[in-house]
Design a protein around this nucleic acid. Structure first.
Lengths: 212, 212
DNA sequence: ATCAAACTGTGAACGGATTCACAGCGTGAA
DNA sequence: TTCACGCTGTGAATCCGTTCACAGTTTGAT
């Protein structure tokens, strides 16, 4: 709970939780570090280290208690209650994101969408109401939303980010292929599909060369 | 061109190229490492180091020549010619991916989609023909596709990955919230939207606490 | 009651990516 | 022609995440 939190560790905790939820559904009560590691594609030492920073203990003979561990990760990752999230840009990608998250995580819910296209506003898309861009600042402030998803074209991303930050958002998940300029207190996670695909294509090609 | 290629460096090169393309469109001819670094959100030393592993030289007085650098990165990242890519899963996310990449990178093109839903097969979606799953193995092999995108539900992802790898694919971009089990020679890049969002929400919350 | 086995918890070692710091260089000004 | 400046290129130092390796612990068997 203390110290500096490496974001890699947060990612792993999130993954562990999903894996553990599957196990819990299968009535698995305990799991060893090496078992969880295998499912997560990590080493056992890594898992134990993560448990350590979480402050979670297991039994040397039984391993970690699944139910308690899920709870511990939840208590750490989740907000006190529901954390509302805003989505800006309801194009193809934005709609896919809405449907992807619709009702997935109970504590994390996209409750406001925004788009500049008049054809989209005042409609409910995948369970989420879409508002006019002009309402962004006030609505985000009123709902005290602190996390937002940016799914607009590259050219509009910086302006959208500025508006969101101005309205009090301090965490951005950015899908636009642009590096957003934000104050240091704002956390930005970039999901860059073009780069990801180019990377995979690059390594796939290299694997081919290696095999020949 | 030689040695082990850290995938982080590949990501940066991909980003640099896009930033440089924008600059080229603005008729910028030369750029200094600190300028490119600023646009990419990196340090100048990092940029110079990347140029070094690329084997690209700049002038101490003018910086790097934009056009030549774009070409150097392209010669490195891109295949000889067109690299065809397969997409499996044409749900909301799959369609968004199709539209996202439609005609974006000339050398990287999604030319075959697959889905198990009969309502989707034999249609052309965002310019890409959608085939039956049964055709996957043969079509991937015939086109000698080596890179594929997995955008199916978690439960089907492993089976799809097995089929793709069996057909000769050795690079996977995986959107399913599952760790795929693949042979060591296959490169997998995971895009885990749930984890990304949880991470942003976590840090956003923490920023709030810090400010108070 | 004692022992063996297999795990956890963690200080220390490791390794790779990033940053530092400076030598070397090309250019424009005097 | 010479000098001063500000950049590049890069060996060395640093930093940080990961892995190693082992002491400590709990349990079941004898």
């Amino acid at each position: 709970m203390l110290g500096q939190w490496p974001d890699k560790a947060i990612e792993r905790l999130s993954l562990y939780r999903r894996l553990l939820a599957n196990l819990a559904a299968e009535r698995v009560k305990f799991i060893y570090s090496h078992e969880l590691a295998q499912k997560a594609g990590r080493t056992a030492a890594q898992v134990r280290r993560d448990m350590m920073i979480l402050g979670f203990s297991g039994s040397p003979t039984k391993g970690y208690e699944v139910a308690r561990l899920i709870e511990a990760i939840g208590g750490f990752l989740d907000a006190g209650g529901l954390q509302e999230i805003a989505l800006v840009g309801v194009g193809n990608l934005g709609r896919a994101i809405l449907s992807y998250f619709a009702g997935r995580r109970p504590n994390l819910s996209i409750t406001a969408a925004f788009d500049s296209d008049p054809a989209k506003v005042d409609r409910v898309i995948h369970g989420c109401p879409c508002h006019r861009m002009e309402e962004l600042a006030s609505l985000v402030a009123v709902k005290s939303i602190n996390t937002a998803i940016v799914a607009v074209p590259a050219g509009e991303a910086q302006a959208v980010a500025d508006a969101l930050v101005g309205a009090g958002v301090c965490g951005l998940l950015n899908f636009a292929p642009v590096r957003l300029r934000v104050p240091g207190a704002v956390f930005v996670e970039n999901v860059d599909l073009t780069t990801s695909l180019e990377k995979v294509a690059f390594f796939a090609r290299r694997q081919l060369l290696r095999q020949e």
